[in-house]
């Protein structure tokens, strides 16, 4: 019984595979209007249709192999990357896993419609079997998408972390001779290294004489952060630039004192504005006033 049931599913799946291949064009056109594809391929409908065709091809191959429930079927391999990109793109635009799953599930209905429309007798048992095979197949597709979605989610987090390292340490050149680094978040050793490198680089590139390190956005200043700050200040000094540290909030100032950290060798100012005023005033003393743009 069991065996023949499986055999029935397999043969219905093979027929479904033939059907999918034959109606690829029509299915792709309908899918291209579905939220999943429309939201990802916003620029060009042709591109969406091509992407849809690739997915139909994959489904057709998996179905023709007679195993619509095989999540590891080789047929999925050609679209795995594409599906990953699609779910990644949906995730970036704010769609959660549940929504992506729903959007994949919604792809089934238009195919069922075509399947029924094609049959002379829509209530014939072989039509029901093909619909069942399609349902299994689409369930498998949904699992494949969810897997790639979770995978690309983790990748996304790792990549965003890397990007944040870069983005969160912009060196802003205010005007000739003064650069500002607004520090944000956690100043661990990796971050500090990035900060130091980009600061020194821009001091060299722009011939800056003053650098303002603003720590308003740094949540915790412990001995390691203080040490990193002091090292950065020393390195900048070696390159001929004076650093001003600004944005030390009152609670942090008290904490630093209790910790026993001596920032005596570092010029500090309460706010970024104060630090800039200091740097610009000193700049004015150092060189003839510069009326020019940044």
């Amino acid at each position: 019984m069991k065996v023949s049931e499986q055999e029935a599913v397999a043969s219905a799946a093979r027929e479904l595979g033939v059907f999918l291949e034959r109606r690829k064009e029509q299915i792709a056109r309908r899918w291209a209007d579905a939220p999943l594809f429309r939201a990802v391929f916003t620029d060009s409908r042709d591109e969406a249709v091509e992407a849809c065709k690739a997915v139909v091809d994959a489904l057709s191959e998996v179905a023709s192999a007679g195993s619509p429930e095989d999540i590891a079927a080789p047929g999925f391999d050609q679209v795995r990357e594409q599906l990953g990109r699609m779910s990644g793109s949906r995730t970036r635009t704010g769609a959660g896993p549940a929504q992506i799953a729903d959007e994949v599930a919604a792809l089934r209905a238009p195919v069922v419609e075509l399947l029924r429309a094609e049959a002379t007798d829509a209530s014939a048992p072989e039509v029901a079997e093909r619909v069942l095979a399609l349902t299994l197949l689409m369930g498998t597709l949904r699992l494949v998408v969810m897997r790639t979605a979770l995978g690309s989610g983790q990748e996304l987090i790792a990549r965003q972390r890397e990007e944040l390292l870069e983005v969160a340490t912009p060196v802003i050149s205010l005007r000739e001779g003064v650069v500002v680094v607004p520090l944000i978040g956690t100043l661990d050793s990796a971050r500090s290294q990035v900060v130091m490198e980009s600061l020194l680089e821009s001091i060299a590139d722009r011939g800056a004489r003053y650098a303002v390190l603003d720590i308003t956005g740094v949540s915790t200043v412990d001995s390691l952060v203080a040490q990193h700050l002091m090292k950065t200040v020393d390195a900048a000094r070696l390159m001929g630039a004076e650093c001003v540290v600004s944005g030390i909030r009152p609670a942090i100032a008290q904490t630093i004192v209790h910790l026993g950290i001596d920032l005596g060798s570092v010029v500090t100012r309460a706010t970024l504005a104060d630090a800039l005023a200091y740097a610009l005033a000193r700049q004015g003393v150092d060189a003839a006033p510069d009326a020019g743009a940044p």
């Binding site: 956690t186 949540s219 915790t220 200043v221 412990d222 001995s223 390691l224 009152p250 609670a251 942090i252 008290q254 904490t255 209790h258 910790l259």
Partner: peptide, 28 residues
């Protein structure tokens, strides 16, 4: 760890100074 301790302390009604001291000690 820092974030969690910050959250717990804020929930317990720590003021900003005490909270900063606690989180900094924890960080060390």
């Amino acid at each position: 760890v820092r974030q969690q301790i910050r959250q717990v302390a804020a929930g317990l009604g720590f003021g900003l100074v005490q909270l900063t001291k606690l989180v900094t000690a924890a960080s060390e």
